[in-house]
């Protein structure tokens, strides 16, 4: 049952990211809804969920950007695996810790993505990090607070379930 719900939500989050991001973007900066979802699932249910949610979310994401097919697949998979491993080390009921770890994860994701994309062009790398990545981390973290609280309310995702 939980697996079905996770897959269903994954499709909804990908569709929302693709269709709604222009609507909710501020100065071309939109929150990374897919990463918020992958992070939540991995942090709440561990490695197995993290790996598969990361892989399939990345796959769906990449099908809409064929020039870099595989890049999000690999990055979301790694995030799913690492955050899933970290699950046991943190008290998952603490929303504050969850949001802090999410912000660090997103920042690392942005840095790695930018490095891979711009192939170590130092000037462009810093411009992109300052102009896009850091504001995006702030915006996504803010949105993640709301999404995490919302997802926790789903009975199947509750801690004691």
């Amino acid at each position: 049952m939980r697996v079905t719900l996770v897959f269903l939500l994954m499709f909804i989050f990908v569709a929302l990211q693709i269709s709604l991001s222009p609507l909710i973007s501020i100065k071309e900066i939109a929150p990374n809804l897919i990463l918020i979802f992958v992070f939540f699932i991995a942090f709440s249910f561990g490695q197995t969920y993290g790996i598969w949610t990361g892989f399939f979310s990345g796959f769906l994401c990449d099908t809409f950007n064929s020039t870099y097919f595989g890049l999000n697949m690999a990055l979301f998979l790694i995030i799913g695996f690492i955050i899933g491993t970290l699950k046991v080390k943190f008290y998952r009921d603490n929303l504050f810790i969850q949001v802090i770890i999410f912000a660090i994860t997103l920042l690392l994701y942005e840095i790695i993505y930018t490095i891979l994309l711009w192939q170590f062009s130092v000037g462009i790398f810093f411009v992109n990090i300052l102009r896009y990545s850091i504001p995006q981390v702030f915006y996504s973290t803010l949105i993640s607070l709301f999404i995490f609280s919302l997802l926790r309310k789903i009975p199947l995702f509750a801690t004691n379930h």
Binding site: I51, F55, G58, F59, L60, D62, T63, F64, S66, T67, Y68, F69, G70, L71, M73, A74, L77, I78
Partner: peptide, 25 residues
């Protein structure tokens, strides 16, 4: 899965993207 992702990224030019996109669309 990581190897699969890296291979997809490396050989994306040889992949039938229309088929992949067709499924997701």
């Amino acid at each position: 899965l990581l190897i699969l992702s890296i291979l997809s990224y490396t050989f994306k030019g040889n992949l039938r993207m229309d088929v992949v996109q067709g499924i997701s669309s």
